[in-house]
Design a binder for these strands. Structure first.
Lengths: 163, 163
DNA sequence: GGCACCTATCAGCCAGTGTTGACAGGCAAG
DNA sequence: CTTGCCTGTCAACACTGGCTGATAGGTGCC
């Protein structure tokens, strides 16, 4: 656009340079255990089926490593929706801090489902939360997800509780 | 997924569909008098010299008429900076409403300078406001702009375009 | 040893964002 | 009426956002 350099970020414009850090924070919050964390490809696939929006693993990596950062609003919306944060999270410092506190709290919880719900709960009404949960459940049933994902995200321990 | 119809937006994704309206609101707020309002080209030039970011008049029109709406963060930042609103204005309904109230109030004022300052004042500390004002004044002096605005915002010498 | 399946990273491609340039219509000055 | 400026609008172009595919390295299972 401006023909500005694209590698080193000139401090001239207060652009969204912290997007990479924000993204990494979110990922770390959702998957506190490094071993259990899926790669960017798997994570992107998860985002795709959860939000319906398209995103590639490679691009996720590019964003997380700061190689690309001038995303479009559509992508921003998809990311925000998946991680359960308001889109302003990527723009406003205060909002980011507030949400980050919530994230730390959620990380403390052991149960993956509760953690996930807690993340998505921020700023939503009870009705919205309920509707979301129902939709996700429906989607899973519809896709006939096998008893995989033993300790991954959405499903918890294998052959155990589960409503 | 770019089935851009212009008017009817596929409700599949709660995208930023109101960007055109928001933009028009801002323009109308800044230039309440239709007669005195500069065209998109002039307005774009104004934005360019004020914020330093690049934007074309045609593109401004496309955004205002809803032909394009999936802007990048960089463009969003430039627009927000010029109009003196926080970037969340384009994302968050509540913020937009709150700021819109401020805009109406500011519109009531006759003096263009006060109106301008009022717009930019929202959410800023007194120090920031002061610094901004100083910078703008310096810029004006530097560009040898005519002795301040009469009722327009900035007066440009006819037939002269820099850069 | 080997193979199969991961992962992160890179190079190249396509689509759409954002550009420049030009056209038609309105309004004031000559 | 003609000339000139300014407006909104469009079409053709360029650049980069975002994707697909391939490569290199790691770990487990045979």
């Amino acid at each position: 656009m401006t023909g500005h350099e694209g590698s080193s970020v000139p401090p001239g414009r207060p652009l969204l340079r912290k997007l990479d850090q924000r993204l990494n924070d979110l990922i770390a919050a959702l998957y506190p255990d490094e071993r259990k964390r899926p790669g960017y490809a798997k994570l992107a696939a998860e985002i795709r089926q959860t939000t319906g929006g398209a995103i590639s693993g490679t691009y996720l990596w590019e964003l997380a490593t700061g190689k690309k950062r001038n995303v479009t609003l559509e992508q921003l919306d998809v990311l925000a929706e998946f991680f359960g944060v308001p889109p302003e999270y990527f723009l406003n410092e205060e909002v980011a801090d507030r949400v980050n506190a919530q994230l730390k709290l959620a990380t403390a919880l052991r149960d993956a489902r509760v953690r996930n719900l807690a993340l998505r709960a921020d700023g939503l009404s009870t009705e919205s939360l309920d509707a979301l949960l129902a939709m996700v459940s429906e989607a899973r049933k519809l896709q006939q997800l096998s008893p995989v994902v033993d300790e991954n995200v959405v499903d918890a321990k294998p052959g155990n509780d589960e409503r």
